[in-house]
């Protein structure tokens, strides 16, 4: 076996990884079908899609670059406030709002990444938490602009691109959110399977070795932090556009903690962890909550403990994998 062949093999292997898995086709087709088949659940599905996007942005940090964050809601909330204020003062066209929110949150991410990237995991936890608390307090203090604890209302939501009305149209607004999520998932998939994405995983695996093979660690981490912040901002903007109020809960600690929880339940490092986690979390919240409104959190906590004990790396997904693996082994046996 010569060297040419080995390189060829690894390229083929990487291309194979980049290609879409059949489950992904099924997932997106099912998501598209749900627009028509599940009209009674559109509001819940819209929330799941938005949380998924938010969790995806955290997955880019945690799952691929190994940056832990307890303050990711800072960018989510910032994007939401920017989108709402932009809609109130300039135009209520949603796509423009998303772009503006994405850029604004990205810039905030770029600026704060310099603080976050100093130090190790524990320092990062503290710094990200601190940034989110500072953002929360700013939003609370500037109540002349943000409405403070009363929330920011009166945001106009015009038809998307002037033709597709989403205000008070649950089906349309779900379709809109789903399309935005699909585009951003597609982009994220390209990012993580690009050389850039692989360099992030190298940094996550061993920063010293990564830098010794010529990867500019800090620049790469700043870039991914900016992208993740921008994604979070767009998720926040989507929630602002589909809920008629932006309030301090968009930016509070609970939101940062919940998104981390969802991502861990779903599993990190394969992009869809946030989808699985947020779907399980919100469906559990809704259906267990309908039976026992006060105690649904108990079951979520219980699930988290079980997952942490038995399926650490990929959350519930690895439980499926184990079952699938077991089934395959059964088949392999004569």
């Amino acid at each position: 076996m010569n060297t040419g062949n080995t390189v060829q093999d690894s390229v083929t292997a990487l291309k194979k990884k980049r290609a879409w898995h059949w489950l992904e086709y099924v997932f997106w087709l099912a998501a598209a079908a749900s627009v028509f088949l599940l009209p009674s659940q559109h509001a819940l599905l819209t929330q799941i899609a938005i949380w998924s996007l938010f969790a995806l942005s955290l997955d880019l940090l945690l799952g691929y670059a190994g940056i832990v964050s307890l303050g990711h809601a800072a960018y989510f909330g910032f994007g939401a406030y920017v989108a709402a204020l932009f809609a109130i003062n300039f135009t209520g066209e949603p796509i423009t709002g998303l772009i503006v929110a994405g850029i604004a949150a990205g810039l905030l991410g770029l600026a704060t990444s310099l603080l976050v990237l100093r130090g190790t995991d524990l320092t990062r936890l503290m710094v990200t938490l601190g940034i989110a608390l500072v953002m929360y307090e700013i939003a609370n203090q500037m109540s002349w602009l943000t409405g403070g604890a009363d929330g920011l209302t009166g945001m106009p939501v015009n038809p998307v691109l002037g033709i597709f009305p989403i205000y008070f149209r649950p089906a349309n607004s779900y379709a809109y959110v789903l399309i935005v999520c699909f585009v951003l998932f597609f982009v994220a998939k390209r990012i993580v399977h690009s050389p850039f994405g692989y360099s992030l995983r190298a940094i996550k695996g061993n920063p010293l070795r990564a830098s010794s093979i010529g990867i500019p660690n800090n620049l790469r981490l700043i870039a991914v932090y900016t992208i993740a912040a921008s994604y979070a901002g767009i998720a926040g903007a989507l929630l602002a556009q589909t809920t008629p109020v932006v309030s301090l809960t968009y930016i509070d600690f609970q939101r940062s903690a919940d998104v981390l929880l969802m991502l861990i339940i779903g599993g990190t490092g394969y992009l869809y962890g946030g989808v699985v986690g947020s779907a399980l979390f919100l469906v559990a919240q809704k259906f267990i909550g309908n039976i026992t409104p006060q105690y649904w959190e108990f079951w979520i906590g219980f699930a988290l403990v079980v997952i942490a004990l038995f399926a650490r790396d990929r959350g519930v997904f690895s439980i499926f994998e184990r079952i699938l693996g077991a089934l395959r082994n059964d088949k392999a046996k004569p």
Binding site: A43, T243, W296
Partner: peptide, 17 residues
Amino acid sequence: VRDDAGRAENTARIAGE
């Protein structure tokens, strides 16, 4: 009876549902 956990987006969603 429905729980919104004090979050506006939940309240709006639940009201719609």
